[in-house]
Simulated assay, not measured.
Amino acid sequence: MRAYYYDNKPGNPTLPHEGESIDSAVLTTMGVLFYHIPIDSEGKWEAHVQRIATHRDYKHSDVVETSRELLGETYEDAMEKVWREHLHEDEEIRYPLAGCGYFDVRELPTDRWIRIRADAGDLMVLPAGIYHRFALDSDEYIKTMRLFKEEPKWIAHYRSAETDQNPNRIKYLNDFNHAERVQLVAI
Rank of each mutant, 00 (worst) to 15 (best):
A135W: 02
L136A: 11
E140F: 04
R115P: 11
I52K: 10
W154F: 02
Y95A: 01
H157N: 14
P16K: 10
L97Q: 07
V125F: 01
F134Q: 13
K171H: 12
A179C: 00
I22P: 04
R146H: 14
E20A: 09
Y158M: 00
W83A: 15
P127D: 07
I37Q: 00
E107I: 00
L123R: 05
A120W: 11
T74Y: 09
H60C: 03
G19H: 05
L87N: 09
T54W: 00
D119S: 10
H86Q: 09
V182W: 01
I114H: 11
F134N: 14
Y75L: 04
A98K: 12
T110R: 12
A118V: 15
N177S: 02
H48W: 04
R181N: 15
G31C: 13
D62Y: 03
H178L: 13
L27E: 07
W154P: 05
E89Q: 15
D175T: 15
A161H: 13
I52C: 11
P16W: 07
G72N: 05
L126R: 09
V26K: 10
R159M: 07
E18S: 12
A156G: 15
K59N: 14
F103K: 11
F148L: 04
G72R: 04
A179D: 14
Y158D: 11
A120P: 05
N168F: 11
R56P: 00
N168E: 12
I130Y: 10
D104E: 10
S138K: 11
I93T: 13
G19P: 08
Y6Q: 11
M79N: 11
D62V: 02
L126V: 00
E42A: 15
Y95Q: 04
W83P: 10
R159Y: 05
R133H: 09
S21D: 07
R51L: 08
S21Q: 03
Y158A: 02
A25P: 03
D7L: 05
R2D: 09
G72E: 04
E42N: 09
E89N: 14
H178M: 08
S160K: 06
G43E: 02
W154T: 08
M1D: 03
E92H: 01
G11S: 13
Y158N: 07
A53M: 10
E18W: 06
R68I: 08
P152H: 02
E46Q: 09
L184H: 01
V182R: 09
G121I: 11
D7A: 07
P109N: 08
Y75M: 02
R133L: 03
M30T: 03
F34Y: 13
T54H: 04
S61Y: 08
P16S: 07
Y141V: 12
F134A: 13
R159T: 05
E18A: 14
D90C: 01
L123F: 05
I142R: 01
E76A: 15
D164W: 07
P152S: 05
R115I: 13
H132I: 05
A161V: 11
P38M: 05
D137F: 06
K153D: 08
M1S: 09
K59V: 12
A25L: 15
R2M: 06
Y5R: 03
D111T: 07
V64T: 06
I22C: 11
F134C: 10
E85R: 13
W154D: 10
